[in-house]
Nucleic acid binder design. Structure first.
Lengths: 116, 116
DNA sequence: CAACAATATTCGAAATCTCTTATATAGTAA
DNA sequence: TTACTATATAAGAGATTTCGAATATTGTTG
């Protein structure tokens, strides 16, 4: 038996899966300030053309990016501003996380010094 | 050459990966209002004990949940409130997404009707 | 101690993901 | 048409994820 809750979780899981790769996160971040062509993305990220195209296909499949074809170029952009918002929260989370990790390392260091 | 940007993206990707499964999202959602024992989670989610334990291990490894052992039980809780915040944004994103999907379906439906 | 309860870990098979290489498609220009 | 540019897709190998079954660990109780 499948309910709305399950569908919602499935949806969220697929969304997270789509962003669960450094290259795809880099793509979305590059598109933060507006659209870029596939070629521009490839140049900025310094990755293989086929690889970039595959990652873009993943992001497209999950509706995280949309594309617009003009002449023989394809321009990509982030489909919804909330996606950028999620990444921003992640940055805050990362910083909070990092602070804690640094604090923990300092504490360990202190203990090490006392031991000597 | 590895820089902070890359580490940050790696970190974000691993975080997303950790949440990229319906069961793990369900776990975090169950822990939204406070800690629960592993047993309580298993009961609420209706999944295999070993499976739950494996998913909890993934969430632990990425510091998304923390645990506290008391007697012969283990109580889990979400480590950082920003994680809940991310899921909340996801809910908003989902709803925005759904509205668009419904709108699209209605539009298609309208076209279908006009055709007949 | 033995038996039990709660949870974690290991193992192996199936599914999924990621990368590189090769090829296909579509638009443009000569 | 042929050649070229930009992008997408297919195919296959290797890595990772996921699950259930079995087993291990740890704390409790009699």
């Amino acid at each position: 038996m499948i309910n709305t809750q399950d569908s919602l979780r499935q949806f969220k899981a697929e969304f997270f899966q789509a962003l669960a790769h450094p290259t795809r996160i880099a793509i979305v971040e590059q598109l933060r300030n507006g659209e870029l062509s596939a070629g521009a993305l490839i140049e900025r990220l310094g990755i293989e053309q086929a690889n970039a195209s595959q990652h873009l296909a993943v992001l497209r499949a999950k509706n995280i990016v949309i594309n617009r074809k003009t002449r023989n170029q394809v321009f990509y952009s982030v489909r919804h501003p909330l996606i950028i918002e999620v990444l921003d929260i992640m940055r805050r989370y990362f910083h909070a996380h990092m602070s804690e990790m640094v604090a923990t390392l300092k504490a360990i260091d202190k203990v090490e010094k006392i031991r000597k």
